[in-house]
Design a protein around this nucleic acid. Sequence first.
DNA 1: GTCTATAGATCGATAGAC
DNA 2: GTCTATCGATCTATAGAC
Lengths: 181, 181
Amino acid sequence: MDQAQLLSRLQLVFQEHGYEGATLSKLAAHSGLGKASLYHHFPGGKAEIGATLLSGAIERLEKLAFAALRQNANPRQRLTEFVDGFATYTEDGASPCLIAAFSQGSAWVAHGDAVAEQFQSWRALLAATFQEAGYKPRRARREADALLGVLYGQLLLAKLSDDPGAFRRSIKRLKKSLLAG
Amino acid sequence: MDQAQLLSRLQLVFQEHGYEGATLSKLAAHSGLGKASLYHHFPGGKAEIGATLLSGAIERLEKLAFAALRQNANPRQRLTEFVDGFATYTEDGASPCLIAAFSQGSAWVAHGDAVAEQFQSWRALLAATFQEAGYKPRRARREADALLGVLYGQLLLAKLSDDPGAFRRSIKRLKKSLLAG
DNA sequence: GTCTATAGATCGATAGAC
DNA sequence: GTCTATCGATCTATAGAC
């Protein structure tokens, strides 16, 4: 099994149980490795596994979604590409995404600063793009917050309603309203 | 300390750490009671504490928010009252709300059916109200999903961005667009 | 109704064989 | 690089004094 596949299996455990609920026993069982093998790959134990997954998720979300906002296309085009990228990001099994799972309890204490900084940077980038699209600064920030809120909210909604299609439908809606508004 | 205050303190622990991360030691420490005392009040242990809090949260959300949708006012008026009620519900310290905290891991397995049924019922009620407001059935369901998604998403966003005001601002936005759209 | 003390299971983490 | 065996800490839950 290669590294990417191992990380993917470990990530599922964190997403399913949250950071504190993802015990080493569960991580070992779902990865097919013994506990000691996990410590061979991640000497820092559970905290290092979590940090590796979290930074990987941030990197992937940056590359798939937010990078589109830094390109040269017109602002509304960039925004719809961002939404598409976010949808792609969620397709590798990231139902309620890993970053949300890490926003609770001791995971937040351990890794929260890095997440919070990255998040604020993304938030500012998105607001700047709305501003380029013609919104005044204040309004642009609120549009950015609203868009982020919808994206995260729909992820949770898809799980609560046990309806994966709900997320895809809301993505289509979002793109339409972005192009229209 | 009365029962309501005890439940409120216990709820904070579940919201902070998620269901699996809310250990009896933390629950005892934050409630100011010993572990054995908790078992006196909740013979079923952690599972009963969780179930009590969850059904209380569902009841409160029904009463404060969704009940408004069952009244006789015109549909758009009911919808804005629903949004107001949802905002009120979140003010008793329910940052990312308890129901969201229970949507992970073993809490979902233990209490998920009750949550899922209640949630689908709420979702249908909200869709019906949008339908009364003039939307066709399909469109009404999507408006309902979008609204629920925004509400839940903004809760998470307020935590990630460490900006409680963001939620309040998005509520104002939502009401305006509901009245306009 | 609350406490201390503790049982038995499981936790994160390590040692050492292969 | 993976395993079994095991450590001390912490977990859920209980017993019994007050």
